[in-house]
Design a protein around this nucleic acid. Sequence first.
DNA 1: CCATCTTTGTGCACGCGTTCACAAAGACAT
DNA 2: ATGTCTTTGTGAACGCGTGCACAAAGATGG
Lengths: 254, 254
Amino acid sequence: MATGRTHRPATRSRGIPEATVARLPLYLRALTALSERSVPTVSSEELAAAAGVNSAKLRKDFSYLGSYGTRGVGYDVEYLVYQISRELGLTQDWPVVIVGIGNLGAALANYGGFASRGFRVAALIDADPAMAGKQVAGIAVQHSDGLEKIISDNGVSIGVITTPPSVAQQVCDRLVAAGVTSILNFAPTVLSVPDGVDVRKVDLSIELQILAFHEQRKAGEEAALNEAALAAPAGRGDSTDQGPDGDVPAVMPA
Amino acid sequence: MATGRTHRPATRSRGIPEATVARLPLYLRALTALSERSVPTVSSEELAAAAGVNSAKLRKDFSYLGSYGTRGVGYDVEYLVYQISRELGLTQDWPVVIVGIGNLGAALANYGGFASRGFRVAALIDADPAMAGKQVAGIAVQHSDGLEKIISDNGVSIGVITTPPSVAQQVCDRLVAAGVTSILNFAPTVLSVPDGVDVRKVDLSIELQILAFHEQRKAGEEAALNEAALAAPAGRGDSTDQGPDGDVPAVMPA
DNA sequence: CCATCTTTGTGCACGCGTTCACAAAGACAT
DNA sequence: ATGTCTTTGTGAACGCGTGCACAAAGATGG
Ligand SMILES: NC(=O)c1ccc[n+]([C@@H]2O[C@H](COP(=O)([O-])OP(=O)(O)OC[C@H]3O[C@@H](n4cnc5c(N)ncnc54)[C@H](O)[C@@H]3O)[C@@H](O)[C@H]2O)c1
Ligand SMILES: NC(=O)c1ccc[n+]([C@@H]2O[C@H](COP(=O)([O-])OP(=O)(O)OC[C@H]3O[C@@H](n4cnc5c(N)ncnc54)[C@H](O)[C@@H]3O)[C@@H](O)[C@H]2O)c1
């Protein structure tokens, strides 16, 4: 998922597959819920259902961490919570900076889900002088002039970018130069980073477009079905009276 | 990525692999930028660089859509923009509802990136009576009592859930019952949906945890390197004076 | 102590996605 | 028209991830 210039070959970190790492937070969430209900042990089948995955996959995932289960019984919930937390590095505190305190940045700052997992908003940074000093989520916004100092003073290694896309790369460059080695990017841009820096992106627009693709496919199948019976009206999705699937390109190739 | 109860076997839709579909929006974005700069054609190498992918992958991706390139020249930008837009279903208008107009829901409502790709915020829905009637991003928030009618009146097939996780499943159920067949879920919950409904989730907390995992691994490698030289201090990441990698579990298994 | 029963841990096969490498195709110059 | 040069489109190999199916392990009861 790292979108750096050089494509790192999936660096199976210390033997734990990337796909497994991506599921550990899911397991952890389900386990935390069980822990709060004081459930002592859980079977792979139950936990898998709670996490929305296959039980075989879950057992294989856990096997990468070690053999923490007891055959015939299941897994000890508390113990597993600790092991996964430790594996994910959540037993330590991760100071995070958010750069670009607009609509989205402010929403993230207000989000309680951060602190609950060992992530602490160490600073909010914005380039707008009018924002500097304002309190957002109980934290004073600081001007981006001091970005480097803020990063180094707080020992920040994780940065969140919620600036407009036009400045995302330069913000990224400054973060990296200041010592940040993990970036969560909300701006719809491809970021170039040096080796050793991880970038993950959250792109709302892409998610919607993927949904639209499947939605269109579903509508197409439905239409084909209706067509097979008779030339029936579409019913849903006729908000515009444009043809559902024009075949004539807007511009022909040269 | 659909997290429904039944695991659909990657339904290679109409021959286009899921992984390719997920990259089409990326290509489209890069192509749109080129189009705005009036670049007439682009090679797979250039476009791949702009989209942050391998050029062979890009060519293979495009080969699923058909042979739209010209050997020795490259791809016609305008034509490709149209073809990808059509394939993704962006030539039609998709009305979208957002349910749960809190911090995040309001940020999304204000986001301009929706409309630019054929997605139109048809309605904002919240359960809080105090929110009803309030204007957010120029749209009046409606009470969730009328959810079903709003969905059907506007022919909405895509819903965005930004409610607290505790109510996400029931909101999801109502959306589905009302006719929504695609859901973008921001609440940290596993949603169960019937077959034929697509769910995609955006989970900030998971992204951060994945970053933390890699961050810890990097720190560990670095520490091992330093250790090899001498018992050197860690320098970064000592915000708490807790040992960097305790080995004693909090609770021993039964 | 033994039998039975539950559940883990994993060997194995399969399919998807990625990447390499190259032949074919077309543009362009001469 | 012909040759050269660029770039596409794709066959093939490989690696990762997934899921099945089962043997091994341990709990539990008699
Ligand atoms: N709002 C959403 O729901 C949403 C959804 C998906 C993606 N995004 C993306 O997230 C980003 C932020 O969206 P938004 O709606 O919050 O935009 P916004 O305009 O409300 O906020 C952007 C903020 O970044 C600040 N900024 C600008 N340049 C900066 C710089 N060089 N350094 C530091 N701060 C700087 C601005 O002062 C502003 O406060 C955009 O890239 C947008 O495309 C937003
Ligand atoms: N804020 C963030 O940056 C952020 C980040 C990641 C995930 N999330 C998740 O997104 C969701 C929303 O976060 P938020 O910060 O906006 O929370 P919020 O509390 O600000 O907003 C939630 C809104 O949902 C409304 N609501 C509650 N029950 C409802 C119902 N049954 N039907 C319709 N509306 C209902 C509430 O009235 C409120 O306006 C949460 O699940 C949160 O975990 C938020």
